[in-house]
């Protein structure tokens, strides 16, 4: 059952990938700017620029370029970056590992912090704690990450000097865990909006569940407060939360672009931003198609996760 569902979902990624590929191709070409002119620099004459265009097939009609690119993409060939002159897929995979570290750390922080804060607020609904948590959550959702990032750097890196302001590792590596101090600030920055959002959803869901009859029944039969909360209420309250956490995983991929820029975190987002500025079409297209693919996989994973949490959910028709 599940495997048929998986197969169907995996097949559904094909039109999504083609759609994303088409849109990103079109958007990059409609934005004014010429990678050949940018590569050639302010001193270049027209024949130099023309030669570069010819080299990368940029002088062909758009339809030809599109079909050629898509054809190669289907065969797993992401093309070559115009500026880096290296295979796009190798660059993207190189950088994606770093984005994944940042994203995973942020997601863990956001989920753990958000759920705890949400429960705290829900169990003390309308108290001062509740209002404070919800106020902070509102700020967390509203503040742009590039601003919070800068503020955190100024406080913790420049003033207190507890943590490094940017980068991913010290100049001389001291083992695989030397990235931890470098990870803290960007991960917290990236996690904050998601954490706040998860806290709000958890609180809402929890408050609702706590008013259900079965909770009242559990209390009535004399179960301890914490047993009711953790054993009965939380399990049911978490279903919408899991959906949100899954969606936040995608959001984190997007937010990572800004956070990577502020913290100089060498991830995929930074690569794509540089690609956009230099109109490196193959790099941007490849990077975004890859990101879309990861996004689809994450969503699929979340859907499968439902069946584990909530036995009521079954996939596969019937």
């Amino acid at each position: 059952m599940l495997s048929a569902f998986l197969l169907r979902r995996l097949l559904a990624t094909v039109p999504i990938a083609v759609g994303v590929a088409t849109i990103v191709f079109a958007v990059m070409r409609f934005v004014p700017g010429d990678p050949a002119a940018l590569l050639a620099g302010p001193n270049a004459s027209d024949d130099v620029i023309r030669a570069i265009r010819a080299e990368y097939g940029l002088d062909d009609p758009l339809v030809v370029q599109y079909v050629r690119w898509l054809g190669r993409l289907v065969r797993g060939d992401f093309g070559e970056s115009i500026f880096l002159r290296r295979p796009v897929l190798a660059e993207v995979l190189d950088r994606f590992g770093n984005t994944a570290i940042l994203g995973a750390a942020s997601l863990a922080l956001a989920a753990a912090g958000g759920i705890v804060a949400g429960i705290l607020a829900a169990t003390r609904a309308r108290s001062l704690v509740d209002r404070l948590v919800m106020f902070l959550a509102l700020c967390g959702v509203g503040l742009p990450v590039f601003w919070t990032g800068m503020v955190l750097i100024v406080i913790f890196a420049v003033q207190l000097r507890w943590l490094p302001p940017q980068g991913m590792s010290p100049p001389v590596r001291q083992g695989p865990f030397d990235i931890v101090p470098f990870l803290i600030l960007p991960a917290v920055t990236l996690a904050l909006p998601s954490l706040a959002f998860i806290a709000r959803v958890t609180r809402m869901s929890m408050v609702e569940v706590l008013q259900q009859d079965y909770i009242r029944a559990a209390r009535a039969k004399g179960l301890a407060g914490h047993a009711v909360l953790w054993g009965h209420a939380l399990k049911n309250a978490l279903i919408p939360v899991v959906t949100i956490v899954g969606a936040q995983a995608g959001y984190l991929l997007g937010g990572a672009v800004l956070v990577e820029y502020v913290f100089g975190w060498p991830g995929l987002g930074l690569l794509i931003v540089n690609g956009i500025n230099s109109r490196d079409y193959p790099l941007v297209q490849g990077g975004i198609v890859f990101t879309a693919f990861v996004f689809v996989i994450i969503n699929l994973f979340v859907d499968v996760l439902y069946t584990r949490i909530d036995p009521r959910i079954r996939y596969g028709g019937r």
Partner: peptide
Amino acid sequence: RPIPDAQS
């Protein structure tokens, strides 16, 4: 060390 942002 590449640091693209001037403020950083």
